Amino acid sequence: MLERVVDWVRVRLGASLARAGITLPWWVAVCTNGISLALAGTAIGQRHALLPPVLLVASGVLAAFSMLLWLFTARIAPPWLRSATVIAAMAILLLRPVEPDFASVLLVVLAAEEAAISGPVVVISVGVVSLAVLAAAGWWGGEQGVPLYMVAVLLGLSAGRMLRWYVRALDAERDKQDAVRDQAILAERQRIAREVHDVVGHSLSITLLHLTGARRALQEDQDIDEAVDGLTEAERIGRAAMADIRRAVGLLAGAPTSTRPLPGAGDIADLVQRTRAAGLNVRYEQEGDLEQVGASAGLGLYRIVQESLANIAKHAPEAVAEVGLRAGPDGIRLSVRNGLRPEAPRGAGSGLPGMHARAEQLGAELRAGPQGDHWLVEVTVPGVPAPVAGRAVTR
């Protein structure tokens, strides 16, 4: 039963505070209102024999006005209205001061609360009026300890403003964290989009080369075996591409993905071999020890080569392509060069922006563009300690 009541208060009060633009937690409002009601009830009880019942009832209703308004309408009383009703209730009670006086303490709580949730005009007004009521109670009513109560009101105002500043700083930090999280999510989605683009673009290009070879084998050479080999390789590449796409889409959905390792620099030779088997004339030259290339750098270089070969297959399938990968103590240098057709589109699509984004993630420098009658993609990754260990050339 108690849990249901707490949940009801939390949900209802949280919604009311949000509509009123108050950022304090719901339990803070419960605590301050509970303390205020307890102080008001104590102050009224102290004067049960000093004031007429009608004044005691009036002060109790005024002190509990904001609470009653919320219970019946689910609305938070405006700060000026709550302050006015509480100060009016305390003014009635201070007509007959007692020692110690809990009515004066309630003014301290009111000052702290309004300073935490209200603007400067309301805060200054509450402070001035509270001090005036205390001064009047001390001057005409003989209230004892007025200077102490006044200092307490000022301290309450200071504490409330400090709490307001802290809440605003906390909200700003939360907004900053949300922005950072959104940027991280966007960056991850862009990374996955590049993965899908590279996989789909390369796989479709190589598959089309195999299909073209199979068609020519049937139409021109009547070679069924060669056509079957081309179709089989196209099927294998398509299935592998589907597996990679499922893995990338699984990252977006947060689903478990395949445990197959991501490709790296050592897989570039196999990539070139598969592309050559599809009919593209590609030469590959490698220098250095690729075992020293990190997984992140290796994946980035692999995807850049994959995208470059896909572009060659799409725009210049008859051209001779050259892929060079050199790893040394000063870094890694990757180059992909191919003959350039004058009518071939330059810089169209999202391939080049994707390669630039990958190079930027690696802290590498990428240059892509025409160089004479060739198209050259060149990537330089600095500072990778990879001692030269050998040389491999594939023609």
Rank of each mutant, 00 (worst) to 15 (best):
E113Q: 14
L252C: 13
R260K: 12
L24A: 15
A193Q: 08
L218W: 06
Y166R: 14
V122D: 09
F72K: 03
A241E: 01
L39G: 13
A169S: 13
W165Q: 13
L204P: 03
A20V: 08
W375K: 07
E322L: 14
L366A: 12
L134K: 11
Q286A: 05
A152Y: 04
L211R: 12
L134I: 13
G230D: 04
A310T: 12
L262K: 02
R191S: 12
A316R: 13
R276T: 13
V282C: 02
A74T: 10
A116W: 00
W8H: 15
V305Q: 09
D289Q: 00
E233L: 07
L208G: 10
R274D: 03
I332K: 04
L231R: 07
A18C: 05
V323E: 09
D101M: 01
V6E: 10
N33F: 03
V200E: 07
A310D: 12
T85S: 12
Q190I: 08
A112V: 02
V5E: 07
Q144W: 04
A15Q: 12
L17C: 04
R283E: 03
L94C: 06
V126F: 03
L68N: 01
A136T: 14
T232G: 13
A88R: 01
A29D: 10
V384K: 06
R181A: 14
V11E: 11
P382N: 08
E113H: 14
A29K: 10
G142D: 04
L13A: 07
P25M: 03
V123D: 02
A392S: 03
G300I: 01
G264A: 11
Q306Y: 04
R168W: 06
V57H: 00
L186R: 15
D171L: 11
D267L: 00
I206S: 13
D225N: 11
L107C: 09
A364D: 06
V377F: 03
V5F: 03
Q46R: 10
V393F: 02
T232C: 02
R367A: 15
L271V: 05
S59E: 01
G347M: 04
V381L: 07
P52D: 05
G127W: 04
R341F: 00
L334P: 10
R96F: 00
T207D: 04
P79S: 06
G339R: 09
W140A: 15
R341C: 01
L186V: 14
V320Q: 15
T232K: 05
Q177N: 12
M90V: 14
V377N: 11
G266A: 07
P342T: 09
Y284N: 00
I87C: 08
G127V: 06
A49Q: 07
E3A: 11
